[in-house]
């Protein structure tokens, strides 16, 4: 169903693409259809590599967006793994169950693009694959440029094999690829989608800017699902200090900790969840509080707003 926020997934198959890349086929543990995976989307997994430890890792869904009976993800074993990719590569076996949040995307296809240019750096190809699928369904002109290390080329080419794309352009290493050449002389209405290392994305943005691409035509996927900084919160009246992680809201943290908090829209619009701020600076991200209320600094909407610093003390009505 479409309205599931947490998914129980079963590993149906694992393909070894090369020494560092594996592809996982995931089906719903209950056998029902999965929510559609939007183009460019990722799944955030809640992993238990060891008892008592929970880590969150996000991986792009590379299967076509129309498919509802399974997801495919590709995981690269990172040298400096926090544990997530190591866990996937060494511990996850066919038949295992995994918990994940429903897929979310930071990319979307611009509906008025007359041509799309996709640029991927290395494993940054993964969110680009489902984006490409959606763009092709829209019968929009498209070019794909992939910059990668020599050792990954075969595996990444294999990932794209199903796409039957006329000539994806591969470049082995940044020095063999001129972004200026790719971007110059493109027709009006060209949109760029870039995913890869920060420096590559920055470079493409700069070149595009110089050539006169408006910023609304340049779309960047920053990897991961971070919402903001992590911070600690004391709740007045409760003898408890709770930690809000980078990828969760204060409201979610309160709920996780079993602290009752009112809410309605969960998007910073309705004001139902407003709490009193006793101490600490707030990074206000809502649409509800007035400028005066923000300036006074004694209330906040925990569904979207966060601490500017490292700590807050709040009181719930």
């Amino acid at each position: 169903m479409i309205f599931q926020s947490e998914l129980d997934l079963k590993v149906a198959r694992i393909d070894v693409l090369n020494e560092t890349l594996k592809r996982f086929h995931l089906v719903s543990a209950g056998g029902e259809f999965l929510p559609p995976a939007p183009p460019g989307s990722h799944l955030t997994f809640l992993l238990n590599p060891r008892d008592g430890e929970v880590i969150k890792n996000s991986y792009s869904v590379v299967s076509p967006t129309l498919i509802r009976d399974h997801y495919e993800i590709v995981v690269r074993k990172a040298a400096d793994s926090r544990g997530g990719s190591k866990f996937f590569h060494e511990d996850v076996k066919e038949g295992n169950l995994l918990k994940a949040k429903a897929p979310r995307s930071n990319f979307s296809v611009h509906s008025l693009a007359r041509k799309s240019i996709l640029i991927a750096g290395g494993i940054g190809i993964t969110p680009i694959i489902s984006l490409l699928d959606e763009i092709k369904r829209r019968r929009c002109k498209v070019e794909l440029h992939v910059i990668c290390g020599q050792s990954d080329r075969l595996a990444l080419e294999a990932l794209l094999a199903d796409e039957a794309l006329a000539g994806p352009n591969f470049y082995e290493g940044r020095n063999n690829c001129s972004i200026g050449k790719i971007l110059a002389g493109q027709p009006l209405g060209t949109h760029l989608y870039i995913c890869g290392p920060f420096n590559l994305m920055r470079h493409v943005q700069e070149v595009a800017h110089e050539l006169g691409y408006p910023s609304s035509n340049v779309h960047i996927e920053s990897f991961g699902a971070t919402i903001g900084n992590a911070f600690n919160v004391k709740v007045e009246g409760l003898n408890k200090e709770i930690s809000v992680g980078e990828s969760e809201s204060l409201l979610e943290t309160l709920e996780r900790e079993g602290i009752e908090a009112p809410f309605s829209c969960r998007g910073g619009a309705c004001g139902q969840c407003v709490v009193r701020v006793v101490e600490g600076e707030v990074d206000h991200r809502d649409f509800f509080l007035s400028d005066e209320q923000r300036a006074a600094g004694n209330c906040m909407t925990p569904c979207v707003s966060r601490a500017s610093g490292r700590a807050l003390t709040i009181a719930i009505k």
């Binding site: 008025l112 007359r114 009006l188 209405g189 609304s216 035509n217």
Partner: peptide, 8 residues
């Protein structure tokens, strides 16, 4: 019609 957007 030819693809120019708000900023162009």
């Amino acid at each position: 019609r030819f693809g120019l957007g708000n900023d162009e």
